[in-house]
Design a protein around this nucleic acid. Structure first.
Lengths: 246, 246
DNA sequence: CGTTAATTTGAGACCATTCAATTTCGGTGG
DNA sequence: CCACCGAAATTGAATGGTCTCAAATTAACG
């Protein structure tokens, strides 16, 4: 596969965000990037390590996590294809958390100097990158609210709403059906719950006819119901971002 | 007070982050900014509102919050003087959360077009701004961990460590003593606890000789002990950020 | 000083955890 | 294609950290 094809998803992603010139598009496709594959739970970035590159997720899911001194972990975000998993490492010299593959992944690796060069030469792409990191931040904020003030049912429902919506945005699902390789233990680490209680909570959501979650597939059966339970408002995803800056 | 003086704290803040040229410094000081004062709990930014400006905190504390449909709230961050409270609003068109003054505040208001103009004309200042928003994001991530996986004692201890350290960084305290106008109810909303339990937890930290917290003053008596209880590692504050990007 | 906000205290209830043990699922080799 | 295996999901029962709901005390402020 040529490098032009490799970064095509990035062109589409950023085009959705703001209008790109022909120049912008070809600049993206001309970026020097390396394709890299990861098995399950492989480290893409290690907390504490010096950072030298950014990873764009092309296939598979990934997650960011922090470990506590007692060995517990908190998952900080889930990433789906077409998203950068560590764009902040273009500017921050040390990784403050780890990034791991959730299932088999493919990523495009872009060196930091390339990121910085693009940012300085292409105003639109710089904006797109900055906005990407800002939306990252907005999602973190919502996660603080989720684990801080919602009960177990709402936490899980909210997380499922968010992931379903983001998957829809990148056309990774249809009719509320999504490939969903996340284990209950991982869902628990996203929501600050135990795996056991996550299991019981999922059963409760299933019993109420809100979702179906089996065999690596999530189906949202009652979108409005799930939103309601999860107290979900998609504003924080800033799907229409980029229009405000003009 | 002249406008040059108004933005002097910003020069100092960003100089700590990366080396600024004389040009950069005078550009900051020449920025059109308006001074504005707020009483207690006044709204500086309202969730859902269109955004047109950014606010730099000059005096007093501020906090960001989200309200849930059941009326509960989660505080997402606390801000101290010299920090922007809503720099992301330079690019994102709609506020996804509210910002309120914690006590009496003074801010410098900078219009969005000014922010964008600075970002496009001054590479160093653009980097400083971007890094500021990235560190914001890093702090949000740590807060997810804090409310997600730590028990009450650790949550409070961690929050106090963070605030004490950030206050020290901007020289707003000495010998572990800080002006600290935050109520227990607000601490509770930062940590996802109730005010009652926050009160008991603070008592426990006091009993162990870790802190003193009375009359709007926080004193860290046993820094190492508090770090230990809070599982605190300051890496995520990226105090040395900006060096990695060169 | 009076009045409201903030802190403190007590006791009972509950949501989520802990700790096993069991069942089901997904992948693998014979 | 079936037997096997480890991982993931599920179940039960007891424990516990935090919440709830008042009520009392203290501090802040005009």
């Amino acid at each position: 596969m040529s490098e032009a094809h490799l970064l095509e998803p990035l062109v589409r992603r950023w085009s959705r965000r703001l209008p790109l010139s022909a120049d912008d598009r070809s600049a993206i496709l001309a970026l020097p990037a390396t394709k890299k594959s990861f098995g399950r739970d492989a480290y893409m970035v290690r907390e504490g390590a010096r950072t030298t590159e950014c990873n764009l997720l092309l296939r598979g899911f990934a997650y960011r996590q922090k470990l506590l001194s007692d060995g517990e972990r908190q998952i900080i975000s889930i990433h789906i294809p077409t998203e950068f998993v560590d764009l902040q490492n273009g500017l921050l010299g040390t990784a403050d958390h780890s990034v791991q593959s959730l299932d088999r992944c493919e990523v495009a690796v872009i060196a930091r100097p390339v990121i910085l060069e693009v940012a300085s030469s292409y105003p639109n792409l710089r904006m797109a990158m900055w906005i990407d990191t800002l939306i990252d931040g907005s999602i973190f904020r919502e996660w603080v609210v989720n684990v801080g003030r919602r009960d177990a049912r709402a936490r899980i429902a909210h997380l499922l709403c968010e992931l379903a919506l983001r998957l829809e945005q990148v056309e990774a699902g249809r009719h509320g059906m999504f490939d969903f390789p996340i284990t209950q233990e991982q869902l628990a680490d996203c929501t600050g719950l135990t795996a056991v209680h996550t299991n019981r909570t999922l059963q409760s959501l299933r019993k109420d006819g809100l979702i179906q979650l089996t065999a690596r597939t999530l189906t949202v059966l009652d979108w409005d119901g799930l939103r309601e339970v999860g107290d979900f408002d998609e504003l924080y995803l800033h799907h229409q971002a980029g229009t405000g800056a003009r």
